[in-house]
């Protein structure tokens, strides 16, 4: 046995450190080998979140609730967005915000992966992609808290007949939707974090960009209603704006999420499949760019 091992050693190098990697060079095996690290980083995030001040975790409750109240006043009270008779506008907004927040958390958290971890990256090697993956998994915890709040209100409004109808079959899609949101946030975040190593001022755009993105992602309106209204109010630019909303994978996910709970709005298998393909594409692109940056970034910061 020992001899065999030795023989093996004589003939082959275990690995080499060389200047240029192949274009697509992820080592999924290596990431798998570091899975414990991923798990421990997530654990660290959870522990430190828990050990924060009282207001820390509480903030995750306050933020979506207040945002929903404001959206209800502005978009439903003032702007008269029609969310359907069977659903309370507050619940409608809360649903959108809950799933949207998960995406926003992932994107914001991953978009400064390189800068935030500069210290640790310059001292020790591990697959860099572990860091953004950690963010996406840790953000699940915040999502879970906010989702529970949503469920609480859902039950509350169900007693008043203001919660639409739950589509039990579609609940199977729930994990898929969350996964898609996470992947989208991860993919875009990795692309942005790679670009911010060269362009520092991009960081300031991220917060603003996420906000803009929210407005075209059907968070506070049903796609159908929005498309019709835009066609009526801005007939000339409708051909430009509407495709953005209709083809936006984020809007698809938000709309499907609501359809699941309220049985109203749009839902099509085709839409979800297209979203799936686009999402995987963005995530892979992010991975390629991230991997490319990973090799050189220590020398440029």
């Amino acid at each position: 046995m020992y001899l065999l091992k030795n023989e093996n050693l004589n003939t082959e190098w275990l690995y080499t450190i060389s200047p240029k990697g192949k274009f697509i060079d992820f080592n999924f095996k290596e990431i798998w080998r570091y899975r414990d690290l991923l798990f421990l980083f997530v654990k660290r995030d959870v522990i430190t979140l828990y050990k924060q001040t009282v207001l820390g975790p509480l903030w995750y409750l306050i933020q979506p609730l207040i945002t929903s109240v404001i959206f209800t006043i502005i978009f439903n009270g003032i702007a008269n967005i029609n969310v359907g008779e069977h659903v309370h506008p507050f619940l409608f907004n809360l649903a959108g915000i809950t799933i949207w927040n998960y995406f926003a958390e992932c994107l914001k958290g991953t978009s400064d992966s390189f800068k935030k971890n500069q210290n640790i990256f310059s001292k020790v090697y591990f697959p860099r992609v572990i860091m953004p993956m950690t963010v996406v998994i840790s953000a699940l915890l915040k999502f879970a808290i906010q989702f529970l709040i949503f469920i609480g209100f859902y039950v509350f409004f169900a007693f008043q007949g203001k919660s639409g109808t739950l589509d039990v079959n579609l609940l199977l899609l729930f994990p898929v939707l969350v996964l898609l949101m996470g992947l989208l946030g991860l993919g875009l975040g990795m692309i942005i974090s790679s670009m911010t190593t060269k362009y520092r001022d991009l960081t300031f755009l991220v917060g603003f960009g996420v906000q803009l993105l929210m407005y075209v992602s059907a968070v506070m309106y049903p796609i159908q209603d929005a498309v019709e209204k835009i066609e009526r109010s801005f007939p000339k630019s409708a051909s430009f704006i509407n495709p953005i909303i209709e083809n936006n994978p984020l809007a698809q996910i938000v709309e499907t999420f609501r359809y699941m709970f309220f049985s109203q709005g749009q839902f099509s298998v085709k839409g979800i499949l297209v979203t799936l393909i686009v999402t995987v594409g963005i995530a892979l692109l992010g991975l390629v760019i991230f991997n490319k940056t990973e090799r050189s970034f220590i020398d440029t910061v």
Binding site: L9, E12, W13, L14, Y15, T16, I17, S18, P19, K20, F121, S122, K123, V124, Y125, R295, S296, I298, D299
Partner: peptide
């Protein structure tokens, strides 16, 4: 830094038979 894979060399290779 090159040995510990934190940064990559401009030219050349390091070959190892162990972690």
């Amino acid at each position: 830094k090159i040995l510990s894979k934190v940064t990559s060399p401009t030219t050349g290779e390091i070959k190892t038979r162990g972690r």
